[in-house]
Amino acid sequence: MKLSDKRCSIQDAISAIKDNDTVMVGGFGVPGTPIALIHALVAHGARNLTLIKNDANEPGMGIDHLLQSGQVARLITTHLGLNSGAIALMNSGRLEVEFNAQGILAERIRAGGAGIKAILSDIGVGTELADGKQVVELQGKPYLVEPALRADVALIHADRADSFGNLAYVATARNFNPLMAMAADRVIAEAERVLPLGQFDADEVHTPGVFVDHVTELGELSEEYAVVRR
């Protein structure tokens, strides 16, 4: 038996994204942000997107390119503090923003990837983050219903992959990537190295390739992946 080869060009992988799609994007700051895939999505031009990403990167970096190109109607996130441009778009009404508690965003995505419809949580009970949420009483205490999140497409950055789409991450570039890689109908992974089948130790795999639809190998990394000098 043999496992299929999911390698393709970035452009071919991105070409399936449509207007109005929901797109999950891995990364927390620069580490784990799929910068090459983001640039390809800007070039592709799909509009009226809903993005799900922990943060909005910094001006001129990561998903800021998609925000500034006007392709994003809605952003589901946890924190925009390092991107004044994103805050300006939100304040002017040109970008709808839904804030989540960070670990709750992670669990909503994990639930979506695990075939669970919602989680119950006491995080934010009694604060304005509970406004408008369904409340369920369990053993005499109130819990918020946090619906699972899925996406049409997930854009993932991995350190290494094989041609079947098995993925592994390094250091703090892991963050939301393995969760999002399970929670979308079409999962596109960029990897710094794509190994031949059999060269990737099965015990070292963080995301099994069954979750991944397309793998694309990055060539030389652009300056945007490098250490940020502030």
Partner: peptide
């Protein structure tokens, strides 16, 4: 690839561990 939640570049020590956001 190694920052803290505030974006500062940090380092490992013997016994450090990495994991996902969940």
């Amino acid at each position: 690839n190694l920052i803290d939640a505030g974006g500062a570049y940090v380092s490992t020590i013997p016994g450090s561990a990495f994991f996902d956001s969940a």
